[in-house]
Design a protein around this nucleic acid. Structure first.
Length: 463
RNA sequence: GGUCCGGUGGCCGAGAGGCGAGGCAAGGGACUGCAAAUCCCUCUACACGGGUUCAAAUCCCGUCCGGACCUCCA
């Protein structure tokens, strides 16, 4: 099998992935700042990295996957005041919303999911290291800043030059040695949550959290750091700055996922164009949303439209229908097998769109095999199809709705009776009667297909 | 101003020097009592202008257009 090649934001090139430790992969992905409800852009990011993770697991790596929760930041504090609740209650509320949405689209739980506020000790230690070695300074106002001009390799991820950065607007430069110095630690204002440090009471800055937690769970050096495109600067640059100033190797490779856009523009609250996950999940099932979000290449913008989402869901149902039929005909669930062409696509920087072509091929050939009664071909194509879907986290045979089995078996019995009546009517050419049964079932949301193996029924999904 | 990404057929979306990925839609056909499902066939393309090359959607230069980041962001 070909080797896995991945893009690296730092080098802007695709190169062969070589883990630090043979057979193991360590990944840190920046998770949510739980200051609001998840929109489908957040979900896309999670799906993209989940596909990476599943592919690595399939490639027989032992994967340690960290996705953090930023449960304290300026906006959480502000919003808690507006909503007249405590910051921790607000953070937990949105953290739960994210967890529900992630579960709905079949995201594997991270190996560890650390919260920022649970790692203050590690953050203070990291700051102490930087203050001791002169990379950071505490000017006496309770803040701690990293002195960016002392950093040798600052901004190498975004390939910018310090001199060319636009001056930060509204930043309090009075205590900073350079206006571009960034805060590791912020002094507490009255009424704000705070933790003690040698430099005063305060709370962590955003960037410090990730450096400290990555070190806590993955050590000084790890394989892959992921996140959204917008985190490259400043967040990831500043993480690198802190961790390297502490003497850590930090991330070997950087992966960044692109946006879900609307009318070509990034989805964001300030533009008022956020598509909240729970709203979309009323329209399509989780597996269908995942299929849609996962189908684009992770580095390409995904322009959202309802038509595209619906079309994608219909396409998924065709695949699902085929796999269900295959399972019925073979009397056994096809085992998931990853075919060579799908593997080749995935190894090429997770080229899911190219992989989709092989899925289409398996679908077409599999359907043909059903028509031809070729069980071997059916088994092969259904297995490869299922294998590909498993990597994408969209295996319909795994993603089944767990309805009450008692109710389901009673329902299938009733429908089977109706279908028997219909078959009898057709045999005596009483098409009025047979169509009445079909129409009646259709009105209840039950679709009938006449196949070579006899009639089969399925319940229409919510549209 | 700096750093990047992109523009492919009616639509979506791959490819990155030489065989027109794939899907959706459309048209035709097979199957069917009809329908659905399924299969087969057909069709259309590389923003614009130069250049390099035997050969350019692909490489180079320029132009136009869209988008992202530059201290809130997946």
């Amino acid at each position: 099998m070909s080797a896995l090649n991945l893009y690296d934001t730092a080098t802007r090139q695709i190169s062969e992935f070589k883990p630090l430790i043979a057979g193991e992969v360590s990944i840190y992905v920046c998770g949510a700042t739980v200051q609001g409800s998840p929109h489908i852009g957040h979900i896309r990011s999670a799906v993209n990295f989940d596909i990476l993770r599943r592919w690595l697991i399939h490639s027989e790596y032992k994967v340690t996957f960290i996705r953090n929760v930023t449960d304290i930041d300026d906006k959480i504090l502000q919003k808690a005041i507006i909503e007249k609740t405590s910051w921790w209650a607000l953070a937990m509320k949105y953290e739960r919303e994210f967890s529900h949405a992630f579960a709905a689209v079949n995201i594997l739980p991270p190996t560890y999911e650390p919260r920022a506020t649970g790692h203050i000790t590690q953050m203070v230690q990291l700051m102490q290291t930087l203050v001791d070695n002169g990379a950071a300074y505490a000017p006496g106002n309770g803040d701690v800043y990293v002195e960016v001009r002392k950093l040798k390799r600052y901004l190498r991820l975004s390939h910018q030059r310090i001199e060319e950065l636009l001056p930060a607007e509204g930043s309090d430069a009075s205590y900073k040695r350079d206006p571009r110095d960034f805060a590791m630690w912020k002094s507490a204002k009255p009424g704000e949550p705070s933790w003690p440090t040698p430099w005063g009471e305060g709370r962590p800055g955003w960037h410090l959290e990730c450096s400290a937690m990555a070190y806590a769970y993955l050590g000084e050096c790890f394989d892959i750091h992921g996140g959204g495109l917008d985190l490259i600067f400043p967040h990831h640059e500043n993480e690198i700055a802190q961790s390297e100033a502490a003497g850590f190797g930090f991330a070997n490779r950087w992966l960044h996922n692109a946006w879900v856009t609307q009318s070509g523009e990034k989805m964001s609250k300030s533009l008022g164009n956020s598509l909240l996950a729970d709203v979309i999940l009323e329209r399509v099932r989780g597996v269908e949303l995942r299929w849609y979000l996962g189908s684009a290449h992770y580095r390409s913008m995904l322009e959202y439209s309802q038509a595209a989402l619906d079309e994608s869901a219909v396409a998924f149902r065709r695949i699902e229908n085929f796999l269900n039929r295959a399972q019925e005909i073979l009397s056994v669930a096809p085992q998931g097998v990853v075919g060579d062409s799908f593997a080749k696509a995935m190894n090429d920087d997770l080229a899911v769109p190219a992989g989709l072509a092989t899925i289409s091929e398996n679908l077409r050939l599999g359907n043909q095999a059903i028509t031809d009664g070729d069980r071997n071909a059916l088994s092969k194509n259904a297995s490869e199809l299922r294998g590909a879907l498993q990597i994408l986290g969209c295996d319909p045979l795994d993603f089944t709705l767990t309805a009450s089995t008692q109710l389901t078996s009673a329902l299938s019995g009733v429908i089977a009776l109706a279908l028997q009546e219909r078959t009898s009517a057709r045999e005596r050419s009483d098409f009025a009667a047979s169509d009445a049964i079909r129409d009646g079932l259709l009105a209840l949301g039950i679709t009938i297909e006449d196949t070579a193996q006899g009639p089969r029924w399925s319940i229409m999904e919510k549209s």
